[in-house]
């Protein structure tokens, strides 16, 4: 056992390092990922140890990052791209949606594009516009992409390595306000023993209501569950981890058990990922439900200026309010 107490940012760094050690085809590409180590220091020290050919400081053009990564992947490499902030993924949207997602099918399976696109996501760090967004639904809606979000340092360490090993393109969301959360990680762990990458995880068992979350909201929901316990309410918390594919089996099992469901995400409520969850749960768990699936999500507005973000982001109280509404049905 080679354990260490690491932040989430450092856990991803260690995961990247291990993936690069194990496979010489793994490359890192992005803006400021080299000497600086990324604006969140996730790639800190990797260029020094693996060289400029494998940790590539790219020109400042996100479409170029993804487009050239696709070319590298066609050539047999496994690029891990960093998009510096969520709001900057949009210049790359064409390459992600029309090329990265669809080229494998276009080739009738002749080409595989094992490209990982890391996107620091979500709000809560007092940033200016375009630095606090949650664009996951644009990508879950695009067939051909896998979309996942890590919520804690251990998952961050294992999931980034699993994502790199997958032969499909992966949009990998990292909750930036959780980058500094710490946990003890076994750096020598056998990845085969890690939680399967496309499976959800029940991170707190409960009996009264299922709360579904991913990425930055998992901790919020766990805090809510702890608070609810004091009020005699037992929340079961499911960390979805993978949004596409979605582990419906784990979700449905939990909802059938509790009979109630609340979805929590930072992204706007309208047409958000919660809508897909609500539709699927309604279809598959209809006779188990005591109340409709409710959402504790961001407002259906653009992300506000940072002085207002605490109003925008669903917090512990908003989650519990949704739980209360579920019981009031």
């Amino acid at each position: 056992m080679k354990t260490a107490t690491l932040t989430m940012a450092r856990s991803i760094n260690e995961g990247l390092r291990r993936a690069m050690e194990e496979d010489p085809k793994v490359l890192i590409m992005g803006e400021d990922v080299g000497k600086l180590g990324g604006v969140f220091r996730v790639t800190d020290g990797l260029q020094k140890d693996f060289g400029e050919d494998r940790v590539i400081d790219t020109p400042l053009a996100e479409s170029g990052i993804i487009g050239t990564a696709i070319g590298m992947a066609i050539r047999g490499y496994r690029p891990v791209c960093e998009i510096q902030f969520d709001g900057f993924v949009f210049p790359a949207a064409n390459q992600i949606i029309t090329q990265l997602a669809k080229m494998p099918m276009r080739s009738l399976g002749a080409l595989r594009l094992p490209v990982v696109v890391r996107v620091p996501c979500g709000g809560g760090i007092g940033a200016v516009e375009h630095h606090s967004e949650s664009p996951e639904s644009y990508f879950t809606h695009t067939a051909g992409l896998r979309v996942m979000a890590c919520a804690n340092p251990l998952d961050a360490y294992t999931m980034i390595q699993q994502a790199i090993r997958l032969d499909d393109p992966v949009i990998f969301f990292e909750p930036k306000r959780r980058y500094w959360e710490k946990a003890e990680i076994d750096l020598g762990m056998d990845l085969r023993e890690a939680w399967p990458v496309d499976r959800a995880k029940v991170v707190r068992e409960g009996t009264d209501v299922t709360v579904l979350a991913y990425g930055p909201m998992v901790k919020t929901v766990l805090d809510a569950a702890a608070a609810a316990e004091g009020e005699g309410r037992s929340l079961e918390v499911v960390d979805l981890r993978s949004l596409n594919p979605l582990d419906t089996e784990t979700v449905f099992r939990s909802v059938r058990k509790t009979g109630r469901c609340v979805v929590a995400h930072e992204a706007p409520t309208y047409s958000g990922f919660g809508a897909e969850l609500a539709a699927r749960i309604t279809e598959h768990c209809f006779y188990s439900l005591e109340a409709p699936v409710l959402r504790a999500c961001g407002f259906s507005t653009p992300y506000p200026p940072s002085r207002l973000e605490e109003h925008y982001l669903p917090d512990l109280d908003r989650v519990l309010d949704a739980v209360d509404r579920s019981f009031g049905w």
Binding site: A69, R75, Q99, R106
Partner: peptide, 27 residues
């Protein structure tokens, strides 16, 4: 099969393939 012919698939979104070509060249 693009790998069989070293001739990539037709790309319909105008210009997108130039980046793939460049990335491939970097490879």
């Amino acid at each position: 099969d693009p790998t069989e012919h070293n001739f990539h698939l037709y790309t319909i979104v105008i210009g997108s393939q130039t980046l793939h070509a460049t990335g491939y060249a970097m490879g």
